[in-house]
Simulated scan of single mutants.
Amino acid sequence: MKTRNSFFVAVALCALSSSAAFAFDWPQEQTASDSFFSYFGQLRGGTISSSLIFKDNSEIKAAYEGRVTAVITDHGDDFGWFESTLGNAVTVAHKDNLVTVYANLDDESIPEKLYETKNVESGEKLGVSGNSGWQEGQSCLEFKVIDTKNATVINPRILMPRVGKELPLAVGTLTMDGKDGKSHNLTWERYIPAGVYSLYRKRQSVAVPYRTSVAINGATVESISYDTLKESAGLLCATGNSNYSAQELYPDAERQLLAIIQLTHGRNTVSVTVTNILGAATSVTYALDVY
C-alpha cells in the first residue's frame, strides 16, 4: 500500500545573492510578468504572501532537478509557518539547500511514481494545477521557494525567467502616523511637528515593489526589500531596519509601510522611491517645514 505523506515543511530562509549558482525553469507555461494572480510580498488573507500564484490552469513540472521529499494529499487546518493551506502539493529538494513547493494541485493528476521518494529532472511532470489550496475557486499553481538553511522564503521571480512588461508602480498618496496617534497627509500638509513617524504609501491592490526606499535630506534612512521574507517570532516578515510583520507592514487594507523616520526642526526634504524587479524606479519628493 502506498503511503501518502501529510506534513508541513517547517523551514525559513535568508537572502539569495543575484549570483545564484543556478536559475529555475518555469514550473508551468510561461506567464507575462504583469499577469500573475498574486505576487510575492502582496497582502493576502491578512498576511504577507510567501508565494507566487499563477493565473491559468496548467500542467505543472519541476522547475529544476532534485528529489521529491513529500507528496501532500491530506491536510489539517494548520500548516505552521506556511501560513496557508497548501492543498495537494509536491515538494522537491534541490542543491544549495533550496526547496520548491508546488501547491494547489489536482490530486488525481499527481503521477503515482512520485509517492515514492525519487529523483526528478527539470521539466518532469508533477501534476496539473487544481482547486485544493487556499485560493479555492482558482485552479492555479501556488509556487514557493524555500531555503532550508537560512530562515527565509525567496521571491520565486528572482530565480525565474521574466517575460513581458512589469505591472506599473506608483508611489501613491503618502501619510505619516505620529506616536501621538495623529495622521498627516503629505498631499496637502507641509507643516509637521518634529518627532518619529511611521511613513506609509497608498497600497496598490496587486503590484508590489521589489524595494522601497526613503531618504531625508538626501541620505537614505530605510529600505524595505521584497526579495525574501524572514521568519521572526513565528511570523513572516519583510526586512528593513527591522523585521516587519504583516500587521506592521500592512496596518490596514489601504496602506503599506515605507519607513520609520525621524523629522527634526527645520526644512526636511523627504524622498520616496519604489523600484520594480528590473530596477526601474519611480520617486516623489516633499519639502516639509518641521516645527
Rank of each mutant, 00 (worst) to 15 (best):
Lys2Ser: 11
Asn5Lys: 14
Asn5Trp: 11
Ser6Ala: 15
Ser19Arg: 08
Trp26Met: 09
Ser33Lys: 12
Phe36Gln: 00
Tyr39Lys: 01
Thr47Glu: 12
Ile53Glu: 11
Lys55Asn: 09
Asp56Tyr: 09
Lys61Arg: 13
Ala62Thr: 01
Ala62Asp: 00
Val68Ser: 05
Thr73Asn: 05
Thr73Phe: 05
Asp77Arg: 13
Thr85Asn: 13
Leu86Tyr: 04
Gly87Ile: 06
Gly87Lys: 03
Ala89Ser: 15
Val92Gly: 09
Asp96Ala: 10
Thr100Ala: 09
Tyr102Met: 03
Ala103Ile: 04
Asn104Ala: 05
Ser109Tyr: 08
Ile110Gln: 08
Pro111Glu: 07
Lys113Pro: 00
Gly123Asp: 04
Lys125Ala: 15
Gly127Gln: 03
Val128Asn: 07
Gly130Cys: 13
Gly130Glu: 06
Asn131Glu: 04
Asn131Gly: 04
Ser132Met: 02
Leu141Lys: 04
Phe143Ile: 01
Asp147Arg: 09
Arg162Pro: 02
Gly178Trp: 07
Lys179Asp: 12
Gln204Ile: 07
Pro209Lys: 05
Tyr210Met: 02
Ala215Leu: 10
Glu222Leu: 07
Tyr226Pro: 03
Thr228Val: 13
Thr228Gly: 11
Leu229Ile: 02
Leu229Trp: 14
Leu229Tyr: 11
Lys230Arg: 13
Glu231Lys: 11
Ser232Met: 07
Gly234Glu: 02
Ser245Lys: 06
Ala246Val: 00
Gln247Ile: 04
Asp252Lys: 06
Glu254Gly: 11
Glu254Tyr: 15
Gln262Ile: 07
Thr273Phe: 04
Ala280His: 00
Ala281Val: 03
Asp289Cys: 04
Tyr291Lys: 13
